[in-house]
Simulated scan of single mutants.
Amino acid sequence: MDSKKIGSFIAKNRKKKGLTQEQLGERLGVTNKTISRWENGNYMPDLSLLEPLSKELGITINELLAGEFIEEEKTVEYLEQNLLSTIVYTDNKIKNEQKKISSFIIGIGILICICSFTIFPSESSWSEIYSIAGLLVMVIGIFRELPLSSRWKRGLISSGIFILIAGIFFVVDFIGVTQFERPPIYRYKTTTVFDDMGNKLIEYQNLFYNVYRINADTVNEYYLIDRKKQYDIDTVPVSPFNQNISAIEHILQYENKYIGDNSNIGQLIGALPLSEHGYVYEIDSKNCGLIIDYHFTDWYDNEDLYTERALIYNSVSAFVLIENLEYITFNFSGSSYIVTRDSIEKNYPNYTEIFTDGSISTKNFRKYVEEKIKDPAFVSNVMKIFEKRESQDLE
């Protein structure tokens, strides 16, 4: 079916009848732009308009579809050709309409997925729900467009595509969890409790791994990704401090024989707890001491002995890492705490066992420091090692 030839034939007969495009359009109930598109060969008249259009132009439907006048003896021959052409044209038009619908469905699915990842935060379950819903819509559109007659095969391929894209979503989500420290979007269960130190602990259970959000909604919040699923909400190891910054594995890089390395000392203090409140420090080179002035009172933010736990952790860490450090003074606006290497070595339980063959053992540090400071009784007992001076005693 030659749309250009048919369009030219429509224009020729319209002019022959003395009609403008607007007049012909009014008689057919369409706009003059529609008539123009027909005559330019850009569009074909709708099948429902073939009969009224033919009457208005004074030609037969057979001649309209042929795009020329037909001699009587060739009417049957042209009729068969036009019938076949019309069937093909109609079939193609239906396919094109279906393709448009399928493309629209796929587009809607993609849009839903994009919105689910950008509008909703990862903590919201709606992100997971809408992304899966969007993926389902997308796959329905793909199912409609697969060039297979068997619905079973189309369904099988569509299911494979769904699993593949869902797998990509899971991988991207896992990368987001590991690289940006956020809850997983795809999870089947979320559990919130408070640990023994009173901090919020959230467990996100994924099909392939678990994520623990420790000290949630605090400055010491950090994430633990349990790829092997070896923990649960009751057994996961927790710390009152941000272990992604303050754990022995991260502060080990600041190990030094001498306290005089100012840059190294500054970086170590910045990685240890209490630094989140702001601080300044001074190195006493003559007596190999360290004086740290924190910008808050010692009772501030001290729920569940947080300040005491931090003082013990910071002291042991500093003495373990800086070989010639002899004493530390922690100054707050309310009080000061002084501790010496000698008192720590003699009175801190299992201090010598932190070392193995003269080197720091990360395993033993976790056992005798990180794990021990969770115990309030242990913390209270160790704090007796520190000499505390009230503000009035310092004046």
Rank of each mutant, 00 (worst) to 15 (best):
E387M: 00
F355C: 02
S150G: 00
F69V: 10
Q21L: 13
E276C: 00
N381T: 05
N256H: 09
N206K: 04
V88F: 11
K153R: 06
N331Y: 08
E181R: 12
I245S: 04
Q243V: 03
Y89I: 02
I385Q: 05
N82C: 06
F169W: 02
D173H: 08
E203W: 09
R144D: 13
S336M: 08
A247T: 09
I6Y: 02
L394I: 14
L311W: 15
I129F: 13
G260R: 06
D232A: 01
I87S: 09
F69M: 09
T31I: 06
G160A: 03
F117P: 03
E123K: 04
S149H: 09
P147V: 04
G25E: 12
D226V: 00
T75Q: 11
F104N: 07
L57T: 14
E326S: 08
S122L: 03
I165Q: 00
K99V: 15
Y348A: 01
G289V: 00
E371P: 03
Y294G: 05
P121K: 00
N242V: 01
I202P: 04
P121A: 04
D298I: 01
L272D: 13
K100Q: 13
A247K: 05
W38Y: 15
E387W: 00
A310Q: 14
D46N: 06
A377E: 15
W38A: 04
V236E: 08
V172W: 05
I165N: 07
G134M: 14
R389P: 10
T118E: 12
S159V: 13
G134V: 13
E80M: 14
I168R: 06
V193G: 04
I94S: 05
E308K: 12
I142M: 10
Y231V: 01
I373M: 14
I233K: 06
S343Q: 05
P121G: 02
Y43M: 12
M197A: 12
N256V: 01
I59L: 05
S239G: 13
E255P: 02
I175H: 01
S335F: 02
S317V: 06
I87K: 10
G289P: 01
I344V: 14
V379M: 09
V280T: 15
F120H: 06
D195Y: 09
I70R: 04
V171K: 04
Y348Q: 05
P273W: 04
E282F: 02
A11W: 07
N42S: 13
V76Q: 11
V88M: 10
S359Y: 03
N256I: 01
D217F: 02
N62H: 00
N32E: 11
I344R: 07
Q230W: 00
S3F: 11
F330Q: 10
K153I: 07
Q267H: 09
Q21C: 15
I185N: 12
K74D: 15
R341P: 08
